[in-house]
């Protein structure tokens, strides 16, 4: 009998908030000025998605695959797994998501959702992930050096990807959702357990995706000819 029910989330938090946020500071320092380039890549992904052609969407997916791989190795594997052994099992999932992005983009392809609330929600998430998330550090009373940057840190990378996915239609698109959503839940739980108010961010991203999925499902039958 392991009495597993007597464990709480706090029992699995292996590090202090100070150590957690210090990782982002070190990551930004280690790759400076790359964060400027990855921010620009976030803008390029948004631009390519807005253009909407098959090749543009493939290029956007390739950029996302690249940054997922980069974050998997440089942040999750090299840095985060050092203070949280469980992340060693998460890093391969990020690589898998990168491979799926490439594979589905190349083999099945994507199209953009028809105009409406759902794609605009996607653009909103993309914009928030690239421009809004880096501003959260000072808004939550942390030093600007701990800012999470798209393509450098996992949360903005994952949320931007969710925004991109909401914009799309595609045969195997659903395969790309589980890993980002599970990451957002894990990240939100980690921040919540740390007592950090920023836990709202990944949880809200999941809620927005769920709302967009429902909205898309509701809308689809009405567009079907009788």
């Amino acid at each position: 009998m392991s009495e597993w029910w007597s464990y709480s989330a706090e029992d699995f938090l292996l590090f202090s908030p100070r150590t957690y946020w210090r990782m982002f500071e070190l990551q930004n320092e280690a790759y400076w000025p790359l964060p400027v380039l990855t921010l620009a890549l976030g803008g390029i992904v948004t631009f390519l998605a807005a253009r909407g052609g098959a090749n543009f969407l493939r290029s956007a997916a390739a950029i996302l695959a690249l940054v997922w791989s980069f974050v998997a190795y440089t942040f999750l594997w090299t840095r985060y797994a050092g203070i949280n052994w469980a992340i060693a099992y998460v890093a391969p999932a990020f690589v898998l998501e990168a491979l799926l992005l490439l594979l589905i983009a190349v083999r099945a392809g994507f199209t953009v959702q028809p105009r409406g609330v759902v794609p605009w929600t996607g653009y909103l998430l993309l914009a928030f992930a690239t421009v809004g998330v880096p501003l959260l550090a000072p808004l939550h009373g942390r030093d600007r050096s701990t800012s999470e940057i798209f393509g450098i840190a996992p949360d903005p990378t994952v949320i931007a990807t969710l925004g991109f996915l909401i914009l799309l239609r595609g045969r195997f698109l659903w395969l790309l959702y589980p890993i980002p959503i599970l990451w957002c839940l894990l990240s939100g739980m980690t921040l919540h357990t740390m007592g950090d108010a920023q836990a709202w961010m990944p949880f809200t991203a999941v809620a927005v995706v769920a709302a967009a999925a429902i909205a898309a499902a509701v809308r689809r039958p009405s567009r079907t000819p009788a």
């Binding site: 590090f15 202090s16 990782m23 840095r79 050092g82 203070i83």
Partner: peptide, 8 residues
């Protein structure tokens, strides 16, 4: 927790 500071 206190000594889990990674490679910093």
């Amino acid at each position: 927790i206190t000594f889990n500071v990674g490679e910093d």
